[in-house]
């Protein structure tokens, strides 16, 4: 019975159901509901309830203990007239667009370059090494780079000193720190995205290359006209994941920021955290989080439409 439903779901719907079918179906499904219970409970209590609660909190002068008077849309007004919010919004755009652009091109270049390597052992080793940072937490990655870039005793400045360059204040000059944030972010994920592209390259039909070679195409032409177009779908997936990721940046900034560079590197999610848990403006922080969520959803739907993710 269920097999035919899989094969022809549209036909079973038009059939008249036998008497007593529905209760039996429900009874048989009982263990399945039991299996779904923890998931549904989690979604209700720890995803949808907080979401609905957020709407309420965003219209309250919210206190963790004590009364919580309703203030209408005042929190939203406060967010939209807060210069810090707009500053962090700008930072998110600047960091996000830079990370997306460099982070999109870099893994493709490296994947194509790796694809040209004929020594399998070399290819395999490079793959394994560049993939490593993706596994590390931001505390580890941030810690490593803060140490490497330290003005005194850091490896980078020690190397620069060999070339006679005076120490660069990487983490205390806001403009430089911004670039550090961008490049370290790209550095962390480049290997992972690169491996996704390599998997995509493996999936390209080999007969395309054969016929190209029969037509006398050189390797550059093969890359340009077969490999790159063949990766279009992978690029869409990676691009979409990256866009969603950029709006969620939190850990990296939380770990790598300091008082000097904060105005130039704080992002929207750190705004929510700081406003809510440092300033204790919980209502206003929640209002900002909801605005960001709406913005994220609109952007997600827009990009999905744009690249027709589901086709």
């Amino acid at each position: 019975m269920s097999t035919s439903e899989v094969v022809q779901p549209h036909r079973t719907k038009t059939l008249r159901r036998p008497v007593g079918y529905a209760p039996r179906r429900w009874k048989r499904a009982l263990p399945l509901y039991f299996m779904l219970l923890p998931t549904l409970a989690y979604l209700m209590v720890l995803t949808y309830y907080p979401l609905v609660h957020a709407v309420v909190i965003s219209m309250q002068d919210f206190n963790l203990i004590g009364n919580r008077p309703f203030v209408g849309l005042k929190n939203y007004e406060n967010v939209l007239s807060d210069p810090n919010f707009w500053g962090d919004f700008r930072n998110t755009l600047v960091l996000g667009v830079s990370i997306l652009t460099i982070g999109f091109v870099a893994p493709i270049v490296i994947a194509l370059s790796l694809n040209e390597v004929l020594q399998t052992w070399l290819k395999r080793s490079v793959q394994m090494v560049i993939y490593l940072p993706h596994l590390f937490s931001w505390v580890v990655v941030g810690g490593l780079w803060i140490q490497l870039l330290a003005p005194a005793g850091g490896l980078v400045n020690a190397v620069l000193a060999v070339f006679g360059v005076s120490p660069v204040q990487f983490m205390s000059d806001p403009q430089v720190a911004r670039w550090v944030i961008i490049l370290v972010s790209v550095w962390k994920d480049v290997g992972f995205n690169c491996i996704i592209y390599l998997a995509g390259i493996v999936g390209i039909n080999p007969s395309l290359y054969e016929s190209a070679r029969v037509d006398g195409a050189n390797r550059w032409q093969e890359m340009r006209h077969i490999t790159l177009p063949g990766l279009a779908r992978t690029m869409q997936v990676v691009g979409l994941l990256s866009i969603m990721g950029v709006l969620r940046i939190f850990d990296q900034i939380f770990v790598m920021r300091n008082a000097v560079i904060e105005p130039k590197v704080n992002v929207l999610m750190t705004y929510v955290y700081d406003e809510g848990f440092q300033q204790m403006n919980i209502g206003q922080a929640t209002a900002s989080a909801l605005l960001i969520l709406v913005f994220t959803l609109v952007l997600t739907i827009f990009t999905r439409r744009l690249i027709r993710y589901d086709t």
């Binding site: 979604l43 907080p50 979401l51």
Partner: peptide
């Protein structure tokens, strides 16, 4: 395939995937 209400539950799950944890950290 025979689970009643399967569509609704999958939709609930798909929507939950569009809500980043960071954006509901306070509630």
């Amino acid at each position: 395939p025979e689970l009643p209400g399967r569509r609704v539950m999958i939709t609930l799950i798909l929507i939950s995937m569009m809500i980043p944890f960071e954006s509901i950290m306070i509630p």
